[in-house]
Amino acid sequence: MAIPSRDDVSIVPRPFVVRDRVVETGDTVSLDLVPVGGGPVPEFAPGQFNMLSPFGAGEVAISISGSDEERGSWTHTVRSAGKVTDRLTRLPPGATLGVRGPYGVGWPLASARDHDLLIVAGGLGLPPLRPAIRRILAHRTEYGRVEIVYGARTPSDLVFSSEIQRWRLRDDLRFQTTVDAAGRDWYGDVGLVTARIPDARFDPARTQVWACGPEIMMKAVAQAAIARGVPPAAIYLSMERNMKCAVGWCGHCQFGPEFVCRDGPVLPYPALAPWLAVREV
């Protein structure tokens, strides 16, 4: 892909204001952001991300986990993992921050039409997938069977609980949740997301697999899908790398030959496989 010129992309943050803040788990919140002064938010492709900068704290890449076009807002779901994300999770409604984007290549919704879909999310891998799942459900007849497996550390680490509840009740979708460990009050599944793949219902020759989560989990998902007969080129993973410019200029996010900010974050497995096997890239 050609490197975008400095005129092609905006790297200047726009001021946004936190309109709403929803506590998802002990360390994760969803922030509803609207441009200061109102107006629409730019269109985005599910799987893309924005660079968020709580003023004076730095800047981080955060996926768009939802949007409300009518109300002109973007949702971002942030887990406190360090200095900048911690500041973001503490922003109250009314606080302002800088936002630039959307950036990157998202989920291949167009080429997935008429295919079965196996969507696997681990931990905070669900937020970048949620806009894609919502779009698929809004155009449900264009896709084949849809299987979603969502894994988290414990039941209290599951995000979007009320929306998941609604998805679980649908009969045109199978949504399975599994956690790494649980107490006796949990009646769901316990174990790795990969354990749900052998009996997932899809036609391997006409299936796309989308995965987002810890790299070791995504690698295991890809291997389990390939073992079921899914062609490697039909497997897409969303990668996370440290980002600075987010537009393909600085090379900070390089993963093998790919720049995750510009060529990804969603990349086909064959482009990633040689590098996922390497201990450090």
Binding site: A81, G122, G123, G151, D180, A181, L192, A195, I216, M217
Partner: peptide, 17 residues
Amino acid sequence: GQRLANTRIQLLDIHRG
């Protein structure tokens, strides 16, 4: 073998970050 491999990944506590 698969359960052992899964347990190894679980031990890494991958979601903690």
